[in-house]
Amino acid sequence: MIDFVTALGLVLVIEGVLYALLPGGMKTIMRGALETPDQTLRVTGLVVAALGLIIVWIIRG
């Protein structure tokens, strides 16, 4: 559980830094996401989640 909370905290740090350093770029990315079809976002999300799982599995293994 501690690893999960640590990972969640790291995600928040990375997102916070992106919003602080590149607010205009993040707005552009959000506009692009709104224009992207749901199916594309869904598949991309699943691929990224699987990649993250593989990375964690390799690092922890």
Results as ranks from 00 to 15, higher is better:
47 V>F: 14
5 V>I: 11
32 G>R: 05
50 A>C: 06
11 V>N: 07
13 V>C: 00
59 I>Q: 07
44 T>N: 14
37 P>E: 15
52 G>M: 11
37 P>L: 15
58 I>Y: 09
30 M>T: 09
25 G>E: 02
50 A>R: 00
19 Y>D: 04
19 Y>E: 04
40 T>W: 12
26 M>H: 10
5 V>M: 10
42 R>L: 15
17 V>L: 14
30 M>Y: 05
7 A>L: 13
6 T>F: 09
35 E>G: 13
52 G>N: 03
6 T>N: 12
9 G>A: 06
47 V>Q: 08
29 I>F: 10
23 P>A: 05
9 G>E: 03
54 I>F: 08
16 G>V: 05
19 Y>C: 01
52 G>W: 01
11 V>W: 07
26 M>Q: 12
59 I>W: 09
49 A>N: 06
28 T>Q: 03
34 L>A: 12
30 M>N: 13
48 V>N: 04
38 D>W: 07
17 V>F: 11
35 E>K: 14
40 T>Y: 13
49 A>F: 12
50 A>N: 01
23 P>D: 01
18 L>M: 11
51 L>Q: 01
22 L>K: 09
13 V>R: 00
41 L>T: 13
35 E>T: 09
40 T>N: 12
43 V>I: 15
55 I>C: 05
61 G>E: 05
20 A>S: 11
39 Q>W: 13
43 V>N: 08
12 L>G: 07
54 I>Q: 06
21 L>D: 05
53 L>P: 00
28 T>E: 06
1 M>V: 04
6 T>E: 12
25 G>I: 00
24 G>V: 00
18 L>K: 07
42 R>Q: 15
50 A>G: 10
5 V>P: 00
57 W>Y: 14
13 V>N: 02
27 K>T: 01
19 Y>V: 07
30 M>I: 06
39 Q>D: 14
3 D>A: 08
29 I>D: 02
21 L>N: 03
15 E>K: 03
55 I>N: 01
36 T>H: 06
2 I>S: 12
38 D>H: 08
50 A>S: 12
54 I>N: 04
59 I>R: 02
46 L>C: 04
27 K>Y: 00
1 M>E: 02
10 L>A: 12
51 L>H: 01
11 V>Q: 09
38 D>Y: 08
18 L>Q: 06
7 A>E: 10
58 I>V: 13
8 L>H: 03
24 G>Q: 02
24 G>A: 09
41 L>S: 14
42 R>G: 14
33 A>P: 01
17 V>Y: 05
9 G>L: 03
40 T>I: 15
51 L>G: 10
56 V>Q: 04
40 T>M: 14
38 D>R: 13
55 I>S: 05
25 G>P: 00
26 M>R: 08
43 V>M: 12
37 P>T: 15
27 K>V: 03
15 E>Y: 04
11 V>K: 02
15 E>W: 01
60 R>H: 07
32 G>L: 07
47 V>W: 10
42 R>A: 15
30 M>K: 11
17 V>Q: 03
50 A>V: 11
40 T>R: 14
9 G>C: 02
15 E>S: 11
43 V>F: 14
14 I>K: 10
60 R>S: 10
43 V>Q: 08
18 L>S: 04
44 T>L: 15
23 P>H: 05
57 W>L: 08
60 R>E: 04
46 L>T: 10
41 L>K: 15
23 P>E: 04
50 A>H: 02
38 D>K: 12
35 E>F: 03
